[in-house]
Computed example of a mutant assay.
Amino acid sequence: MRTVELAGLTASAEGLGCMGMSSVYGAADWDGSVATIRRALDLDVTLIDTADAYGAGHNEVLVGRAVAGRRDEALIATKAGMDFSTGRGKVVLRGTPDYLKRACDASLLRLGVDVIDLYYLHRVAPDVPLEESVGALAELVEEGKVRRIGLSEVTGDQLRAAHRVHPVAAVQSEYSLWTRDPETGVAAAARELGVALVAYSPLGRGFLTGTVDVTGLAADDGRRRLPRFSEEAARGNAAITEAVAEVARAKGVTAGQVALAWVAAQSDRLGIPVVPIPGTKRVRWLEENAAALDVPLTEADLDRLDGLAAGVVGGRY
């Protein structure tokens, strides 16, 4: 597995998103998820991504147990600032320094570690100046509880403002063949400042693999609430998955591998490290995803895939 530098931290060029192991995508599988995280480390997939909001802390506990005894092999990224404790499906964005510092202490405890490698502000709270929130993260670095800081789903101006308070190692945003928002927003600022883009949902929440039947999603699957996963939108978006599948068939690989290879290939075009963090709770899919970075895409492939986003039916949310 290739590596990238995140402001002095060496991370794998592809990471593992752990959210779905605890929430959003159906029932949790503790043993299977632990095995998947440990297999990731075996494959040198070292960037392990979690958050305190995933499963109301369950996910951090899971990650902590999975990396126990192998802490030096993992680069643990977690987040704070999205509070779901007010009730199911209701989120309050919190960014006060006191809240973030207490959240960090709680995350350290759940993870069972002495320091968090990469600590993100999960979302910018509308009622707290961003500089105050970032200042709190900077103090956590000074206290030795955090190594590097990151931001999630921010604009270019927000990234610049935060970076003036403390260097930002990475911005995490949804980015894939069918979600290209960072290209017209935060990417330019990230390039100016030397900040990496960590791409979540690089498989379009599974849709780009061509294996998702939207009519068969479990009742508690969070994708049921997303416009792109309605039956009507899925019919319209089938042309996108077929185009990805055609490229995959020509190469003897899977559609998911092509989608991931496309995301990783955008590093050169955007001029910043782009690190996809596909999520899975199964070793089988982890191994398939990890092999995706070895899939060669020609200029013709990239040109063909580049225009698919223009045909997307349905918004992100």
Rank of each mutant, 00 (worst) to 15 (best):
R123E: 02
G315I: 10
A238I: 11
G8R: 11
W30N: 13
Y25T: 02
F229M: 12
P97V: 02
L293E: 02
A243Y: 07
T78K: 07
T10A: 10
G206T: 03
R39T: 13
Y54K: 08
Y99A: 13
Y200F: 15
R191Y: 03
V275E: 00
P227Y: 13
E287A: 03
V63P: 04
R39N: 00
L305D: 03
L270C: 12
V154L: 13
L270Y: 02
L197G: 04
V312C: 05
M21R: 00
I76R: 05
T280R: 04
A238P: 04
V186G: 06
L43P: 03
N237F: 10
V115S: 08
R316N: 14
A51Y: 01
R235L: 15
L16M: 05
V128S: 01
R147L: 02
D220H: 11
A238Y: 06
I48H: 05
Q172N: 05
D114Q: 12
R316K: 08
V61P: 06
A310R: 13
A248Y: 10
I116F: 10
N237C: 11
T96K: 14
T3F: 11
E5L: 11
L109P: 00
L93R: 12
E142L: 11
G156H: 11
T96C: 08
A56P: 15
V275K: 00
A248M: 13
E142H: 10
E232A: 15
D42E: 03
G81H: 01
R65K: 14
L308D: 09
A264M: 07
G194W: 10
E5F: 07
S176R: 08
T241M: 09
A291Q: 04
V45K: 01
L100K: 14
G112H: 06
D181Y: 13
V91C: 12
R180K: 14
V92A: 12
G315M: 14
R180T: 14
V171T: 08
E287Q: 09
S133H: 04
R191G: 03
S33D: 03
H58W: 10
K251F: 12
A13V: 08
G194P: 10
G15A: 06
M1Y: 07
L109I: 14
G135W: 08
L43A: 06
A300W: 05
A138E: 09
A233M: 11
V244I: 08
I240P: 07
N59A: 08
A187K: 09
L111T: 08
P276M: 10
A255E: 12
A261R: 08
E5D: 13
G20D: 04
G185I: 13
A106M: 15
